[in-house]
Design a protein around this nucleic acid. Structure first.
Lengths: 164, 164
DNA sequence: AATAGTTATGTTATAGTATAACAGGAACTG
DNA sequence: CAGTTCCTGTTATACTATAACATAACTATT
């Protein structure tokens, strides 16, 4: 089921989250990894958030679900989910967001709206290719990459108030 | 004077740094900005470092030159230099590196070697174009971007010890 | 050169982000 | 059911970054 929407276009978030959770379970099973309670809960939290969350925000919500109020609780779950490709880290925001394209192999680009702080995951195969190529010209072998853009999302761009 | 080397290829670092400092002065003069002692010193520090430095590392060295031992001293200088395009921030490392291509208009990609921690600035016009295009397809307007790759530099790639 | 406006620095304090390290428990493996 | 590995609980601390306000330095204009 391909997605024809981005985080910038409205969609059925709940259904989307449920589907993503199911995919996550599948992927982890295949990889022989365990979706323990904290991990599952952390993923839920991110899936249901409209924006990227900092580790301490995730922690707060984990605490609300009964987990211990200690940073490693959140960081460990988030690190795990990121390693499994279920969650992405937005470095510019020191924040985490659930992966929205779990089916596809991907190393996406993130578009961060500086006005409304929405974060969208954009397909970025061409960007990756260009980066790998540019790196290769210096003899560098790319293993992982971070591609983030700061700017204005469609909605905020059309609303001149917060712009500029 | 175009550069045909990257941070991965050996070169006359001192001469390079001196040239860069001269260019920096020129650019700031044109922009009507002041290269105050702290700013100059911070830039020198980064220009003479083979690797990216954290803000507190820069601070240490500023202190050694007689400046106050307070974080804002370093952060303010670094922020200024970054705004002027003389220094780049490597988000993956929470570190800063002097710009190596001051002449050219650029929003470069950074190649970070996970073995020796060297950081190279790669020309990335194509990458930028690809990113802007991908963003445009979602109606997003890119203003600034962060493009970083983690991997192995030529030297470390050919030295199987630290690899894998 | 005095004034007012702006920009930069000194300084104190604190907020925010992330990890090390070790102890105990749960789940798989033979 | 013993050994192993992986996960969690917990304490403590390290690292990164900024707010806020006071003072000083520069700039432009009288």
């Amino acid at each position: 089921m391909p997605h024809d929407h981005s985080a910038f276009t409205p969609h059925d978030h709940a259904a989307c989250a449920a589907g993503a959770m199911a995919m996550a379970e599948g992927r982890l099973a295949l990889a022989g990894q365990r979706l323990t309670p904290v991990r599952r809960c952390a993923l839920q939290i991110l899936l249901h958030s409209p924006r990227a969350l900092g580790a301490y925000e995730v922690l707060e919500r984990l605490v609300a679900e009964g987990f211990a109020n200690q940073p490693p609780v959140a960081y460990r779950a988030l690190e795990f989910l990121e390693d499994q490709g279920l969650v992405h880290r937005i470095r510019r925001l020191n924040a985490f967001t659930a992966c929205m394209h779990m089916g596809q192999a991907h190393a996406p680009a993130f578009l961060i709206c500086r006005a409304c702080h929405a974060v969208a995951e954009a397909p970025a195969v061409e960007v990756q290719t260009a980066l790998t190529t540019a790196a290769a010209e210096l003899g560098f072998v790319v293993e992982r990459s971070t591609i983030e853009a700061l700017g204005l999302c469609p909605a905020c761009h059309d609303t001149p108030q917060a712009v500029a």
